[in-house]
C-alpha cells in the first residue's frame, strides 16, 4: 500500500477500518458467552459513546496529522492487543478508547514529529489524565511490542487492500483481528 500518501486512499481506508471495527465490536457485544469472561479494563466506558466509530476515526485522522502508515500500525497494535489480552475483546464500550490510544502510540513510536498526550486527549474527548492511564495500560497490554517489520506491514496492507476491493462482509473467523497468529509466525 505504497499509495497511502495519495489523497483519495486514506478516506477509503478510514471508512473501511471503521466498518471492520464496528462489525468486530458488534459481534463481541452479541457474544454473551464471551461477556461472562470479560474483564472490565480502563478502556471500558460506562456507556456506549454516542459518536460512531467512523466519525471518531475520521476526527482522529483529521486532527492527528500523523503519517498515514500510523493507521495501519495502530491496526496492527489492536490486533496484537486482542491476541495478548483475550479477556479484553474489542466491543462498543472500549473500541473508541482503544482507537485513540493505538493511533497515539503508533504516532509516538513511528514519527519524529507528533502531538502530545494532552492534544490526543482533546481529539479523543477524554481528559489528559485518562489518556495517560490508557497509554500505560495499552503499552503493558502489548508487552511494549511496538515494532512492525516490513513483512508484517506489507501483509496487513495486502490483506486490507484485498478486503477493500471485495468490500463485502468479512467472515469473522478469517477477519483480520484473528489473523494475527499466522501473520506473527510468518513475519514477527
Amino acid at each position: 500500500m505504497a499509495e497511502l500518501e495519495s489523497p483519495n486512499v486514506m478516506p477509503k481506508l478510514i471508512s473501511f477500518l471503521s466498518s471492520l471495527l464496528k462489525r468486530v465490536a458488534e459481534s463481541n457485544d452479541l457474544n454473551q458467552q464471551q461477556l461472562i469472561h470479560q474483564k472490565v479494563s480502563v478502556f471500558h466506558g460506562l456507556t456506549r459513546p454516542t459518536i460512531s466509530i467512523q466519525s471518531y476515526l475520521e476526527r482522529i485522522f483529521k486532527y492527528a496529522n500523523c503519517s498515514p502508515s500510523c493507521f495501519i500500525v495502530a491496526y496492527v497494535y489492536l490486533d496484537r492487543f486482542t491476541q495478548r489480552q483475550p479477556s479484553l475483546p474489542i466491543n462498543s464500550f472500549n473500541v473508541h478508547r482503544l482507537l485513540i490510544t493505538s493511533v497515539m502510540v503508533a504516532a509516538k513510536f513511528m514519527d519524529d514529529l507528533y502531538y502530545n498526550n494532552a492534544y490526543y486527549a482533546k481529539v479523543g474527548g477524554i481528559t489528559t489524565i485518562e489518556m495517560n492511564f490508557l497509554e500505560v495500560d495499552f503499552l503493558f497490554g502489548l508487552g511494549f511490542h511496538l515494532n512492525v517489520t516490513p513483512g508484517t506491514f506489507q501483509a496487513y496492507c495486502a490483506h486490507l487492500q484485498s478486503e477493500m476491493l471485495l468490500m463485502q462482509p468479512l467472515n469473522f473467523a478469517d477477519s483480520f483481528l484473528s489473523l494475527g497468529k499466522s501473520l506473527n509466525k510468518a513475519h514477527l
Partner: peptide
C-alpha cells in the same frame, strides 16, 4: 510530564530492546 505521557524515547527504547 502530564502533557506528554510516556516519553517517546522510553517507548522506543523498551520496544526496540525487547527485540
Amino acid at each position: 510530564e502530564d502533557q506528554e505521557g510516556v516519553p517517546p524515547t522510553t517507548l522506543r527504547e523498551v520496544s526496540i530492546l525487547r527485540m
